[in-house]
Computed example of a mutant assay.
Amino acid sequence: MTGFQPAEASTPDTYAPVEIGLHGVTKRFSDQVAVDGIDLEVHEGEFFSVLGPSGCGKTTVLRMIAGFVDPDEGRIELDGNDMVGVPPYRRDVNTVFQSYALFPHMSVWDNVAYGLRRKSVRGAELTKRVGEHLELVRLSEFAKRRPAQLSGGQQQRVAIARALAAGPQLLLLDEPLGALDAKLRKELQIELMRIQREVGTTFLYVTHDQEEALVLSHRIAVMNAGKVEQVGYPEDVYERPATRFVAGFIGTSNILDATVSGVDGAWVELDAPGVERLRARLNQTARHGQRVAATVRPEKVHLYDDATEPPAGWCVLRGVVKDVVYTGVSTQFVVDTPAGGELVAFVQNARRIDDAGAPGQPVRMAWDPEFTVLLEKSADD
């Protein structure tokens, strides 16, 4: 969409100097624009994730930073130096792939030593650095094994140790946990966080997994259709999504189409079918009668029957319970509403499930208006 601009993090930046900068970077493949004029800055020592669905351009961004492909327009700077046209072997960057890419005929020790030997590190220094990085990934006792004798998680830790051993300025990670089962992924997420904290190397992590990005990252860039829709800290992109796409892609979100009925200082009043009251913080220009979209997360929503009044000043929307899904920690209520079709509320199971409501029951969905967020248009709107 012409004129689309990504929303920046609302929290002031407190990071170190910029390690990697992308300025107006565009990449086309035939008539398809894979990356469309994006700007990004990743700071020294940061764990930065690029998050988005398949085909959004995130892997192309990683490949351009690595030097595997050059942009058609724009600059890619590493530590202030333009890298466009510089071959991969001359960039102080290493990449960890989803497929591990280990040498099957080499031992774990020799795999980790490979990059160091290419840099002419020999003797005691080689032994010391390989030993340190095997200890870092907690695989010292597996030094003599071949990759085929290791689990998937262990192989990925070897790949990380090999990439870090050469001491790159920047480590690129291309969905490195994608081939692992759910339990192992969570274990490796904790390991990655620990490793990044210990070594202090800048990590740029590409993933389609929303939870993974929220757990691992200092900051996140959310991509859609070749553009960056929002850059922010995890709590920014989750609690204050900038666009309809971000709200829908990260977690579960209720999106309401409404009309501006008034602006009262820092608040905007909204009107929609079935709404008793709906208001949001004014975070963009709004005028009376304007059509807008607003969102609220399901865990912020409380359910009330007609005999119970929600707190004064809260947003209130009438509906009828359609489905009740027990998930253990919480119960998911799907509510049919005149305003937005089906909306969802997550209610913590602090009481008996049979007291929580049933399909067909009229309810009022209510929440603190602080949790209502006005949405901007997405890149593909």
Rank of each mutant, 00 (worst) to 15 (best):
S99P: 07
Q290K: 10
F4V: 01
Y326I: 10
E141P: 01
Q149L: 05
P6C: 04
L102K: 02
G52T: 08
G115M: 08
L374I: 15
G328M: 12
A113G: 12
Q284V: 10
A350S: 14
G24S: 13
E141G: 01
V347N: 07
G200N: 12
D381V: 06
L134E: 12
A179G: 04
R28Y: 14
G55V: 08
E198P: 08
G123H: 09
N111G: 03
L343C: 01
G313H: 11
F48M: 11
A163L: 02
F371H: 15
S30A: 15
L164R: 02
L278Q: 09
L343S: 01
C56A: 11
R28L: 14
G232D: 11
A225I: 03
R219A: 01
R138E: 15
Y15W: 15
C56S: 15
Y304C: 08
E212L: 03
G80N: 09
G232L: 12
G152I: 04
T337Q: 01
E73W: 00
W109M: 01
P298A: 07
I76L: 03
D70S: 10
D174M: 05
R352I: 10
D13N: 15
G313E: 10
R240G: 01
L216W: 09
S261P: 05
V329P: 12
E44H: 15
T259Q: 08
M193F: 06
L102S: 02
F4C: 02
A266K: 09
F142E: 13
G265T: 10
L173R: 02
F68N: 07
V50L: 15
T243K: 00
E187I: 01
V324Y: 09
V363A: 04
H133E: 13
G262L: 06
G55S: 08
S151F: 06
L180Y: 07
Q230D: 10
Y114K: 02
M1A: 10
F97R: 02
F333D: 00
G178N: 07
A350M: 13
L374C: 11
A9T: 14
P310C: 06
V96F: 01
P310G: 06
Q210S: 08
S99M: 00
G357T: 04
S217M: 06
T337I: 05
G74K: 00
Q154W: 03
R281S: 14
A294M: 07
P71V: 08
V42T: 12
E212S: 01
F103L: 08
E73C: 03
N349A: 11
S261G: 12
N111D: 05
L303S: 03
S261C: 07
H218K: 12
D368L: 07
P338K: 14
N224C: 06
I255R: 00
H105Q: 11
V324T: 13
A165F: 00
S378D: 11
G328F: 13
V325G: 09
L40Q: 13
L22Q: 05
F142W: 11
A34W: 03
L172F: 08
S49M: 12
P17I: 12
L214R: 03
D209V: 05
L214P: 02
E376F: 03
R157E: 04
K27S: 06
T95N: 07
E370N: 14
R91P: 11
L375Q: 05
V93E: 05
P12S: 11
F346A: 12
F333G: 00
F47E: 04
R364Q: 13
R75F: 03
D82E: 11
D174H: 03
T14Y: 05
L214A: 03
F97D: 03
F142R: 10
R145Y: 11
E8Y: 07
